[in-house]
Amino acid sequence: MTSLASTPVLFQRRVLNALFQALCGICAVIAIAVLGYVLWFLFRQGITYFKPSFFTRLPDNVNPALGGIKHSILGSVSILGIALGISIPIGILSGIYQAEANGKLCQIVRFLTDVLNGIPSIVIGLFIYAIWILPYAQKHPGQGYSGIAGGAALGIMMIPLVMRTTDEMLHLVPQSLWDASLALGTPRWRTMLFVVLPSARNGIVTGIMLALARVAGETAPLLFTVLGNEFLGPITGPVDALPLRLYKYATSSDPVQNAMAWSTALTLILIVLILSILARFLTRAGKRS
């Protein structure tokens, strides 16, 4: 009969086990601690000016402490809205194409979207500036910068991300679901649209939210496209955005505005958070009906 007493080998295993468990635990704690520290720091610094007037007023140059960032919030939200409007249809439809078609063209498209994904955001901003804003400004001096152009820049950045998620999520849908629908005599397009896509919906929405969160903080492409603004303007002209405001306040010589930079950062993070929660809520509600 095997002895139940501890042997050197068993002892060694137990020590190793404990060691690795501790190591994993420590690493997890470090990762969470960094995140926690960032959030806590942001909260502590940002809470000073986190009051209603901060969200309902425009910047006040005479008395900065009374000013707000209403126009930056509205600007960011509309720019992100445009980015979503561009990237969701293009990204999802090309993602479907990636998942369903195969052949040379498909491989080329896949490779090119990977390249697009790797292009630094500032280059995309520069691209929009070169093909859109500069030509316009040459014809109409003093004009050209617009919220729409900024939305287009961020939208282009989101396309490969949305496309990739759609492609991956569609691949996760089991063949059996396809079969079940096709066996009813359902055409392929109808199966995709009403059976396969809905069952991949949650993953796709999550992917879109992640992509949105990623571009929400982009500053570089906005510098060339929306320019920034001290006032509330229409999106057909220069508008302000949270990352631009953040940069402006952080590099300002006024200590009040320096402090407001933190509140702006906190606002940006909250908006992303609210959008994510909203998306979760929407997908959950959709599933129940």
Binding site: S176, L177, L182, A183, G185, V195, P198, S199, S289
Partner: peptide, 22 residues
């Protein structure tokens, strides 16, 4: 047409696969 054929010849699979709907 395959669609018409599959409508006439229905199929039930080993594993039940409900669609993600009501």
């Amino acid at each position: 047409s395959v669609e018409a054929l599959r409508r006439t010849v229905g199929m039930v699979f080993q594993k039940p696969v409900p669609f993600p709907m009501s």
